[in-house]
Design a protein around this nucleic acid. Sequence first.
DNA 1: TCCACGTTTCGATACTTGTCAAACTATAAT
DNA 2: ATTATAGTTTGACAAGTATCGAAACGTGGA
Lengths: 96, 96
Amino acid sequence: MPNKDKDRLSKAFKALSNPNRLRIYQQIKDKRVSEITDSGCGFVDFVNSLKVGAPTISHHIKELANAGLIRVERQGKFVTCHLEDDMLNELKQFLD
Amino acid sequence: MPNKDKDRLSKAFKALSNPNRLRIYQQIKDKRVSEITDSGCGFVDFVNSLKVGAPTISHHIKELANAGLIRVERQGKFVTCHLEDDMLNELKQFLD
DNA sequence: TCCACGTTTCGATACTTGTCAAACTATAAT
DNA sequence: ATTATAGTTTGACAAGTATCGAAACGTGGA
């Protein structure tokens, strides 16, 4: 495996090594499989499910996005988070 | 998902978030699939493939073992590392 | 304009990390 | 028994990083 990929992977794993971020990621992933259209998860979903403030959530979301695990979209005032399938597949492939 | 499992997972991810440990883990995994019998990876394999000293390698191996990702066995003077399939399956399941 | 949603900046505190050198343990070989 | 080999533990260090909140900010809609 090239070093570049190894770095991508280890960064993704690092992003998932925080329980709150793991939860955010899982919530996004779970929501998608249970809906036909991928409407994503809204910021407010995380405000409800986690016991940390908005700035912290914003920070965690950015980390997940930086690691390539999710993608963030704005619609007007609102933000939604979506899975990045490419990275999910890289992770799966690594474990295969 | 129970909190307990989430903690196990985030610990495993943390263990894989270091490039050297990721490499060690992959080496163990790769070697197994390419051999009929699971002879494991020897310590010396890592000494050759990584550019860090023995104490550091020993430390990393312990972290992987603590995270439940691998199992360490001694035969006389030598040490071999083996995959822990249970944890590998937990990781796969999480990503599914 | 003003509110609601979310972001950024800043900071505090504390914890963690990766690594090595040196000393140590355990096993095997001579 | 002495020596050599394989790996571990300890201790230390420098650097980095983490988590989080308060306060201030930006932005888009009513």
